[in-house]
């Protein structure tokens, strides 16, 4: 039927339509940048593509004079290490505690309300406690990510576990499964793809906490650099860094999706 909801773009059309908003945003940027630079050639707010290119060259392809590092890569490595560690620990906690809460009613009764409450505490508001407890080093940054991300994953996995059909649980028991076997053979296999989903959804907040942590006290990292150069409004550095962070986050999201599709093909929708 010729209704709007039934009309679909072709492959190429969809690609072009997807590109359109990007082109519009970039054109608007170029226009405003030109406008501002015409009024003030030293304007730092919306630098010209050439100065952004120069900044990228300076940060990615030239050694820093003071430290001898290639700043963009040092920053990227530091940030990805923190993020990876934070997410891995959060995933481990999420899986362990989430399954336990989902499966064992006694644990659910005692731990679920607490986890729910903790997951609602804004981690950035309790920073001083965090500093005194774990110091200011790498541990503090990873901890901040874990405190921010793990409770959400725990809750998500606990809820998903509780949603498993009762029939499966009863059937496994009639076949003689112990609690431990039930967890290993029925619940755990079904939790992996859900854990990946939960991680994908947490990526945004994990980056947020990473950048917040790096802004507070650090010597390298993507968030550190952005907050450092913000002190003199170096948008020519900040904009490429923001684009780079977006790209990294997108790549991580795609990677997790790919892992889920390859390793847990049975859980893909529409199979």
């Amino acid at each position: 039927m010729r209704r709007l909801i039934n009309r679909r773009p072709g492959r190429g059309g969809a690609f072009g339509l997807g590109l359109l908003p990007f082109i519009l945003v970039i054109s608007a940027y170029l226009y405003y940048s030109h406008q501002r630079l015409e009024a003030n050639p030293g304007d730092k707010l919306l630098p010209a593509p050439a100065s952004i290119g120069a900044a990228i060259h300076r940060y990615a392809l030239e050694e820093d004079e003071r430290t001898g590092d290639y700043l963009l890569w040092t920053d990227t490595r530091a940030s990805l290490e923190r993020l990876g560690m934070g997410l891995a620990i959060s995933a481990a906690i999420g899986l362990g505690l989430g399954l336990a809460i989902g499966v064992v009613p006694y644990l659910r009764a005692s731990a679920a309300p607490f986890v729910a409450a903790v997951s609602l505490v804004p981690p950035l508001a309790v920073l001083p406690i965090l500093f005194i407890a774990v110091g200011l080093g790498e541990l503090a940054k990873v901890t901040l990510i874990v405190v921010g991300v793990a409770p959400v994953i725990v809750r998500d996995l606990a809820m998903r576990t509780a949603e498993l059909p009762t029939e499966q649980i009863i059937k496994a028991q009639t076949l003689g499964a112990s609690t431990w076997q039930l967890v290993l053979r029925v619940v755990l296999p079904q939790s992996w793809p859900r854990l990946i989903d939960a991680l994908r959804l947490s990526l945004g907040s994990a980056w947020l906490f990473l950048i917040a942590a790096e802004a507070i006290a650090s010597t390298e990292g993507l968030g550190f650099r952005i907050f450092l150069v913000r002190r003199y409004l170096a948008m020519d550095v900040i904009l490429p860094y923001v684009a780079w962070i977006t790209l990294l986050a997108l790549a991580m999201d795609r990677l997790l999706r790919l892992v889920r599709a390859k390793a847990f093909a049975w859980a893909e929708p529409g199979v």
Partner: peptide
């Protein structure tokens, strides 16, 4: 400056940062 290591710390958190035992 190269005789020491500077850790960029936000002014809002510097009091808590100094209180940490490692600093």
């Amino acid at each position: 400056e190269r005789d020491l290591k500077i850790v960029n710390t936000s002014d809002a958190d510097i009091v808590a940062a100094f209180a940490a035992s490692a600093s």
